[in-house]
């Protein structure tokens, strides 16, 4: 269980990025956070990752308060952020320094196989396409078998086909160990494809606005009307979150299109 208790973050320059966020996330759940810009999505992930510390509230994982980066929490950034001087295999094994060599190599091999990159272990990151690099970044975070994986708009730089294939890869990886996944995304379709729960955030300060019900089962039928309905409910909640913010000043029709 990942628990966010009254989490808040105010930056030294006075910007209140996140305020009073409380959320309980059972182990193994996939949660998507959507919202307009400035709603604190990325700040929230950085707090959970331990890259920044909250100014109020707490983050608990199975009862343990998180302070700083934690071995049970993995992170996938918007860019792959592979280390260019390490081969693909070395990148994947980067966080496995504590394991015996044989065990480490076996896990790396397994990981490469699982994301369809068997035989790519000796390549340099620069030889990979954007989608391949992001797959490596995902398994790099997952080989250490974290309980929680944080993904910050991980597919936003990829084209639609690559994104769809990565959704499949991600769900496949998730099924193996069922870590909790927290995904920040701009993409309503992505949220509906991946998530068990969608949390819509509201800007200024960033806070939870709504949690529209999805009513979907796995595997997702992306052409069925349930899927379309779920997307519509997410969009409606997003529109609501922006209307509730006078500063945003967008009409509902446009609002659906601009994040």
């Amino acid at each position: 269980m990942l628990r966010l208790a009254d989490l808040g973050k105010t930056y030294p320059n006075g910007v209140e990025a996140l305020a009073h966020v409380s959320l309980d996330i059972p182990q193994g759940e996939i949660v998507a956070f959507v919202g307009g810009s400035g709603c604190g999505k990325t700040t929230m992930l950085r707090l959970i990752a331990g890259l920044e510390s909250p100014t109020s509230g707490r983050i608990e994982l199975d009862g343990e308060t998180l302070a700083g980066p934690h071995p049970s929490v993995g992170v996938v950034f918007q860019e792959p952020r592979l280390l260019p001087w390490l081969t693909v295999a070395q990148n994947i094994g980067f966080g496995l320094g504590g394991l015996a060599k044989a065990e480490r190599e076996q896990r790396v091999e397994e990981a490469l196989l699982r994301v369809g990159l068997a035989g790519y272990g000796d390549r340099w990151p620069r030889e990979l396409s954007g989608g391949q690099a992001q797959r490596v970044a995902i398994v790099r975070a997952l080989v250490a078998r974290p309980k929680v994986l944080l993904l910050d708009e991980p597919f936003s730089a990829l084209d639609a086909f690559t994104r769809a294939s990565l959704h499949e890869h991600l769900l496949g990886l998730w099924e193996a160990n069922k870590p909790t996944l927290l995904i920040v995304t701009h993409d309503v379709d992505e949220a509906a494809t991946l998530a068990d729960r969608v949390i819509v955030l509201q800007p200024k300060p960033g806070r939870i606005f709504a949690e529209p019900a999805l009513g979907l089962t796995r595997p997702r039928d992306k052409v069925g009307h349930e899927f379309a309905d779920a997307k519509r409910r997410i969009l409606a909640a997003l529109d609501g979150s922006l209307q509730a913010t006078p500063a945003a000043g967008k009409t509902p029709e446009i609002a659906g299109a601009w994040w």
């Binding site: 396409s129 954007g130 084209d159 294939s165 499949e168 595997p219």
Partner: peptide, 16 residues
């Protein structure tokens, strides 16, 4: 569900 289908993506020239 894990898919074995890998959709080839265009090489990311901007990274290099």
């Amino acid at each position: 569900m894990a898919s074995d289908v890998t959709i080839a993506s265009p090489p990311d020239a901007a990274r290099n």
